[in-house]
């Protein structure tokens, strides 16, 4: 193990390490802690210039309930959910299929298609912006959640295919051959042999795609406009201009907008990390 385990070192070193951990953590999260402190202050503190002193009252509930009941925030949150969840389902479905095709079969063009998916996934999205926006307008899907979902599914399929294909590659191939010898149809092999083994990969991709799509801002402002279809990342800017300089509300709103992926991460940590490291470093 590197570095040398702290347990093998002097008691003083161990105590220093244990004391340093929380200090470094607080420094690391300082900008975030500052926002959390803002979000529980009453408005009066900001107008009287008391930004960092003792809050004159603890206003967690009034601030957050204003975010939830007095603004468009719930609509934006709902939009985010209605965009994110169909995207996750669509992407995982498409990528399981492409991953299966590229991972199991040997055919001409296999590697070429695989690398096309990878390359597409590395592309800076600005090069897609004008044509995709145009296409979305032509399909009458501009400023709709469907328009965003369709694009997200297509783009995320690149990354997810890479992941799924590598995962399927690592499965025991004799299992598939055995099923073939038994005369099992290919689509049944996919559904009954491979799918059950892909559960961890599906879980990893689902949490990752959820986070990516929830946090998307660029496509949200390119393809949608108003509170009817914009997700929370884009909505937060509208929210902030509504409550300009009301730091207690803006910070509470930001925390609310950030919360779902954070919750997802803490609930599904193992899968999340497996997905991020692409399974390349096990």
């Amino acid at each position: 193990m590197f570095p040398r385990p702290i347990q093998t070192q002097s008691a003083a070193a161990q105590a220093t390490y244990k004391a340093a951990l929380p200090v470094v953590l607080i420094l690391w999260l300082l900008p975030l802690i500052a926002v959390m402190l803002f979000s529980v202050r009453p408005e009066a503190d900001f107008s009287s210039g008391n930004y960092w002193g003792m809050p004159s009252s603890f206003d967690l509930i009034p601030n957050y309930s204003r975010v939830f009941f007095d603004s468009d925030m719930p609509r934006y949150l709902l939009n985010s959910l209605l965009i994110t969840i169909p995207t996750v389902i669509g992407t995982v479905a498409l990528a399981s299929m492409t991953g299966f095709a590229l991972g199991v079969y040997k055919f001409k063009g296999n590697l070429l298609i695989f690398f096309m998916f990878i390359a597409g996934n590395f592309v800076p999205f600005q090069i897609l912006m004008v044509p995709v926006r145009d296409l979305t307008i032509d399909l009458n899907l501009y400023d709709t959640k469907t328009g965003l979902v369709l694009f997200h599914i297509a783009f995320q399929t690149g990354f997810c295919t890479l992941f799924m294909r590598n995962f399927i590659r690592a499965l025991p191939y004799p299992l598939i051959e055995a099923a073939r010898v038994e005369g099992v149809a290919e689509w049944r092999i996919f559904w009954f042999v491979v799918m059950p083994l892909m559960k961890p990969a599906i879980a990893a991709l689902a949490v990752l795609v959820f986070t990516f799509i929830w946090n998307d801002y660029f496509w949200a402002i390119v393809l949608t406009q108003g509170p009817d279809s914009q997700p929370v990342t884009a909505g937060i800017t509208a929210f902030n201009s509504q409550y300009r300089a009301a730091y207690h509300l803006m910070s509470a709103g930001s925390i609310v907008a950030a919360l779902p992926p954070v919750a997802m991460f803490f609930l599904m940590q193992k899968h999340f990390i497996a997905g991020l490291t692409l399974g390349a470093v096990k």
Binding site: M97, A101, V132
Partner: peptide, 24 residues
């Protein structure tokens, strides 16, 4: 089979990612 499995993913990817690059 592999082509049937690839078809939907490829279609989406071609329409929304590959063609737009050339269109740009």
């Amino acid at each position: 089979t592999p082509w049937l499995f690839l078809a939907p993913g490829l279609l989406f990817f071609a329409v929304y990612v590959v063609f737009p690059i050339f269109q740009s």
